[in-house]
Amino acid sequence: HMTFVALYDYVASGETDLSFKKGERLQIVNNTEGDWWLAHSLTTGRTGYISSNYVAPSD
């Protein structure tokens, strides 16, 4: 899985979204569905959809 880092804080707007904080590391589970990616937070252990605009590759 690809690992990304959050560029900004994000508060989930629905049950399927994932809230995260700036600097949080996220593993991308599925990024084939446009701008919203299914991600797993390595910080909180939660999984949900994130906006690809809010993250950048961590490598």
Rank of each mutant, 00 (worst) to 15 (best):
H1N: 13
H1F: 14
H1G: 14
H1I: 13
H1K: 12
H1M: 13
H1W: 13
M2Y: 10
T3K: 04
F4H: 04
F4P: 00
F4R: 02
F4L: 06
F4E: 00
V5E: 06
V5P: 00
V5R: 03
V5Y: 08
V5K: 03
V5F: 07
A6M: 04
A6N: 00
A6K: 00
A6Q: 00
A6V: 12
A6L: 03
L7D: 02
L7P: 03
L7A: 03
L7W: 04
L7Y: 03
L7G: 02
L7S: 02
Y8M: 11
Y8A: 09
Y8F: 12
Y8K: 08
Y8I: 13
Y8R: 09
Y8G: 06
D9P: 03
D9F: 05
D9G: 06
D9T: 07
D9E: 06
D9L: 06
Y10V: 07
Y10F: 09
Y10R: 05
Y10K: 04
V11F: 10
V11S: 08
V11E: 13
V11W: 10
A12W: 02
A12D: 01
A12G: 11
A12P: 04
A12F: 03
A12N: 03
G14W: 11
G14I: 12
G14F: 12
G14E: 12
E15N: 10
E15L: 12
E15K: 11
E15I: 10
E15C: 12
E15D: 12
T16N: 14
T16Y: 14
T16M: 13
T16A: 12
T16H: 14
T16D: 12
T16Q: 13
D17G: 12
D17W: 14
D17R: 13
D17Q: 15
D17Y: 15
L18E: 01
L18D: 01
L18M: 12
S19P: 04
S19M: 05
S19T: 09
S19A: 06
F20I: 05
F20S: 00
F20Q: 00
F20N: 00
F20K: 00
F20Y: 07
F20D: 00
K21N: 08
K21C: 14
K21M: 10
K21W: 05
K21T: 09
K21I: 08
K21E: 08
K21S: 10
K21G: 05
K22I: 06
K22C: 07
K22A: 11
K22T: 06
K22H: 04
K22L: 05
K22R: 09
K22V: 07
G23Q: 01
G23S: 02
G23Y: 03
E24W: 13
E24C: 03
E24L: 02
E24R: 01
E24Y: 03
R25W: 12
R25M: 15
R25T: 13
R25S: 07
R25H: 12
L26Y: 01
L26N: 00
L26T: 01
Q27L: 15
Q27M: 14
I28H: 01
I28D: 00
I28N: 05
I28K: 07
I28Y: 02
I28A: 10
V29N: 04
V29D: 05
V29Y: 10
V29K: 07
V29W: 13
V29E: 06
N30D: 13
N30R: 09
N30F: 10
N30C: 13
N30Y: 10
N30H: 10
N31H: 11
N31K: 14
T32K: 12
T32H: 09
T32V: 10
T32W: 08
E33W: 08
E33I: 11
E33F: 11
E33K: 11
E33A: 12
G34R: 08
D35E: 13
D35Q: 11
D35L: 10
D35P: 09
W36E: 05
W36I: 13
W37A: 02
W37Q: 03
W37T: 02
W37V: 07
W37R: 02
W37C: 04
L38W: 09
L38M: 07
L38S: 03
L38V: 06
L38C: 11
L38T: 03
L38I: 06
L38Q: 04
A39H: 00
A39I: 05
A39P: 00
H40Q: 13
H40Y: 15
H40D: 01
S41D: 02
S41L: 03
S41T: 02
S41F: 02
L42H: 05
L42Q: 05
L42V: 07
T43N: 08
T43P: 01
T43I: 08
T43D: 15
T44K: 01
T44R: 01
T44V: 02
G45W: 03
G45N: 07
G45F: 05
G45Y: 04
R46N: 07
R46P: 00
T47E: 06
T47F: 11
T47C: 12
T47V: 11
T47R: 08
G48F: 05
G48N: 00
G48H: 03
Y49I: 06
Y49T: 03
Y49Q: 03
Y49G: 01
I50E: 00
I50T: 00
I50M: 03
I50A: 01
S51A: 09
S51H: 15
S51Y: 15
S51I: 09
S51L: 15
S52R: 14
S52A: 13
N53H: 14
N53Y: 14
N53K: 15
N53W: 15
N53R: 14
Y54E: 03
Y54F: 12
Y54P: 03
Y54L: 13
Y54I: 06
V55I: 09
V55C: 06
V55D: 02
V55P: 02
V55A: 05
V55S: 02
V55M: 06
A56I: 14
A56M: 12
A56W: 09
A56Y: 09
A56T: 13
A56L: 11
P57I: 11
P57D: 06
P57Q: 09
P57Y: 10
P57M: 10
P57H: 09
P57W: 11
P57R: 10
P57S: 08
P57V: 10
P57K: 09
S58E: 15
S58F: 15
S58W: 15
S58P: 08
S58L: 15
S58D: 14
S58T: 13
D59P: 13
D59I: 13
D59T: 12
D59L: 12
D59A: 15
D59S: 12
D59M: 12
D59C: 14
